[in-house]
């Protein structure tokens, strides 16, 4: 049931909140270095799918396999460790730590993985340069623009060399021009580093930066290109 060569695959996921089904037999897969857009109307279950894939919530049934390992067979601690080492996250509103400077924010995942401050900040600065926000290094998130903050968040997601980035409406709070630049930089950096991206968006122009799109409707994921 796992598509050949896939890095992360889910099969027949079901998840119910009370009496409301959020996922109703959703399947999904992403290959290394592939950018897949998850689209669908509000309330269709796309964020629930992303949270299940990232091991943030546990589905009621179904399987999720990451690099040959079954996610549901892992303990909470193992899943947390996996998120720190292999996954990166970008959300709609950067969610940077306001007390830390931007470079400290980008270095944070590395620091949590035990990298020493100097080395972590050196790597962080390299990513910030790549994301064109090196000027914000010493500023706090409250002192930078929305577009810059989101690029800092992308740099943070990439800094610990993840295998998968989960991006939930990463341009939702940005104007068109800033949103496009964030998508350009995110997808370029991910592709060149062979990082897979699971991109939840309701904007077609954002989804157009992906290699493939999957539509979630009524809790079921439809992959039209692969559904033959």
């Amino acid at each position: 049931m796992i598509p050949e060569g896939s890095l992360l695959a889910a099969h027949d996921l079901r998840k119910t909140y009370g009496a409301t089904p959020a996922l109703d037999g959703a399947s999904f897969s992403v290959h290394p270095g592939e950018v897949v857009a998850v689209m669908g109307p509000s309330g269709s279950g796309k964020s629930t799918l992303l949270h299940c894939l990232a091991g943030i919530i546990t589905p009621d049934s179904g399987t999720i396999t990451y690099a040959g390992r079954e996610l549901s067979a892992m303990s909470d601690a193992e899943r947390s460790a996996l998120r720190r080492s292999d996954f990166g996250f970008v959300f709609q509103f950067g969610q940077l730590v306001p007390e830390l400077t931007c470079v400290e924010n980008v270095a944070l995942p590395l620091r949590l993985n035990g990298v020493k401050r100097k080395a972590a900040e050196r790597t962080a600065r390299e990513w910030m340069e790549r994301l064109e926000v090196e000027d914000t290094a010493g500023k706090r998130p409250g002192e930078v623009s929305g577009g810059q903050g989101q690029r800092v968040a992308v740099a943070r997601a990439l800094a610990a060399s993840p295998k998968v980035i989960f991006a939930d409406e990463p341009t939702g709070a940005l104007d068109s021009l800033n949103g496009e630049r964030v998508m350009e930089l995110l997808t370029e950096a991910a592709r060149s580093s062979n990082v897979a991206v699971v991109l939840v968006t309701h904007e077609a122009r954002v989804a157009a930066y992906s290699d493939r799109d999957v539509t979630v409707r009524d809790g079921r994921a439809r992959d039209l290109e692969h559904a033959v």
Binding site: E184, A204, R205, A207, A208, Y209, S210, D211, D213, T215, R222, L224, E225
Partner: peptide, 20 residues
């Protein structure tokens, strides 16, 4: 509608790539 949607997105990808 789904297959038309997919076709539109395919063209949008081509144009986005050309734009890039």
């Amino acid at each position: 509608l789904d297959s038309q949607r997919s076709e539109h997105l395919r063209m949008m990808r081509i144009l986005t790539d050309r734009k890039r």
